[in-house]
């Protein structure tokens, strides 16, 4: 397992929202759930290219803001019949930084 990419402090993402990051040529939407845990998915909706980081989330799902396709935050699989989003391993380190690993799980 590689050391991962440090995306900086976690508090750049408000609770319950997502932010987009460009990491090693990939577009990644990182979400900070209301319980404080992190999830990371590819940032572009496979349906019509919607910005996933702008989606509304709960503990399980993110809704794409353009046409409300829903994707599981843990796997990227769609519950509304869209193609899946890629998913990434994301953690917080001891300094409250976001650590993202690109190798596809």
């Amino acid at each position: 397992m590689n050391a991962g990419h440090n995306l900086g402090p976690v508090d750049q993402i408000p609770f319950g929202e997502g932010r987009a990051f460009g990491v090693a040529g990939e577009q990644v939407a990182v979400f900070r759930l209301r319980d404080g845990s992190l999830r990371a998915l590819s940032a572009v909706c496979p349906h019509k290219g919607g910005p996933i980081a702008d989606g509304t989330i709960d503990q399980e799902l993110v809704l794409c803001p353009l046409h409300q396709h829903a994707f599981r935050l843990d796997t990227g699989c769609s519950t509304t019949g869209a193609e899946p989003l890629g998913s990434y391993d994301v953690q917080m380190d001891n300094h409250q930084n976001i650590i993202l690993r690109i190798a596809a799980r």
Binding site: I13, R19, A29, P51, D54
Partner: peptide, 11 residues
């Protein structure tokens, strides 16, 4: 934080 930060994909 980042209220108006882009979520636009670069693709």
């Amino acid at each position: 934080p980042g209220q108006f930060r882009t979520s636009l994909p670069l693709t």
